[in-house]
Nucleic acid binder design. Structure first.
Length: 283
DNA sequence: AACCGATTCAACCGCGGAATG
DNA sequence: CCATTCCGCGGTTGAATCGGT
């Protein structure tokens, strides 16, 4: 026989939102067999879902250790930073934030951060124009703190989101039965071969919270004339030698005529998150 | 209270690379 | 190698929800 055995056939496949009953079936199956081999999941469980849908449901909502709800300013800054380095490689970005899924990060970028960036760019343009005409005495801080508020930023999770959290909680500890901490567990899941494979050629280090935070040096005003028009290919090159942090450092000193330096954006993000820009540096 | 546009986010789709025989 | 299938990723969709009028 050539190639792999055929996937589940597409006849009678159910689509749309998952029910709690389906979640329980999926979770208890994975509890017994572990994640992976998705082709067999609908066959063995009787779920009328395709293997893709099962994998997506598990990786994005049911697996233990997923953090839902509002993104912190630290997470925002990390995402902005990594997006500038890696482009829209959400899986790679998500590997730096083990508690967040690529889908969540992608959604958050598209619904929140992209708008913030646009407003930020507009503010900077406005500031640059007023500077060149010499007509304004506004500080960049005043300009960047332009009072944007997302009315739904503190949205309450839906009832069923809570119930999936509960299902996840039931699973806490099943995967690594022994003495490891929950955080270790999350990281071990993320870095298991299966999840590592999802990052394909990109294999970043898994960072502790402290290390993550140390990646966000705020208020560093250094800049150079280097160009920030990173292409994805450029970023891939950076990744290949594990040089992500090196590239990161490069971006720290990066500014061009179109794009403001990242530290300004981070400062602005903090402003918007209600963190006093001039308060004691967090890191 | 009812309508309507805007927003969010869970889920789907299509593609490309990896894996397999 | 080649054909076939699996798997994971990123882009997109659309139902649910929110806020304004």
């Amino acid at each position: 026989m050539m190639g792999r055995p055929p996937c589940c056939d597409k006849v009678g496949i159910k689509k749309g939102p998952w029910t709690p009953e389906e979640d329980i079936i999926l979770v208890s199956y994975i509890q017994q067999h572990g994640p992976g081999n998705w082709r067999l999941v609908p066959i063995n469980t009787g779920l009328m879902r395709c293997s893709k849908s099962c994998r997506l449901r598990w990786t994005n909502y049911l697996r233990p250790g997923i953090k839902r709800g509002n993104f912190t300013y630290t997470e925002e800054a990390i995402i902005v930073h990594l997006q500038s380095l890696l482009g829209n490689r959400w899986a790679a970005i998500a590997s730096y934030l083990p508690q967040r899924t690529d889908n969540d990060i992608k959604n958050y970028w598209n619904t929140h951060l992209k708008k913030k960036l646009r407003r930020f760019q507009a503010s900077v343009d406005c500031y640059m124009n007023s500077k060149s005409s010499g007509s304004s005495s506004s500080t960049s801080h005043e300009l960047l703190s332009s009072g944007y508020q997302n009315p739904r930023h503190h949205q309450i999770p839906s009832a069923y989101a809570s119930s999936t959290e509960n299902i996840s909680r039931l699973l806490q500890g099943w995967m690594m039965k022994s003495k490891i901490t929950q955080e270790d567990e999350v990281q071990s899941i993320i870095m298991s071969d299966r999840y590592k494979a999802s990052s394909s050629s990109f294999a970043p280090p898994v960072l502790s919270n402290e290390e993550l935070e140390s990646l966000i040096p705020l208020g560093n005003g250094s800049s150079s004339s280097s160009n920030n028009n990173n292409t994805n290919d450029d970023n891939n090159n950076n990744n290949n030698n594990g040089g992500c942090i090196g590239a990161w450092e490069k971006s720290q000193c990066t500014v061009d005529n179109q794009n403001p330096p990242l530290f300004m954006l981070e400062k602005w993000l903090l402003d918007e998150s209600g963190v006093p820009a001039d308060s004691t540096p967090l890191f």
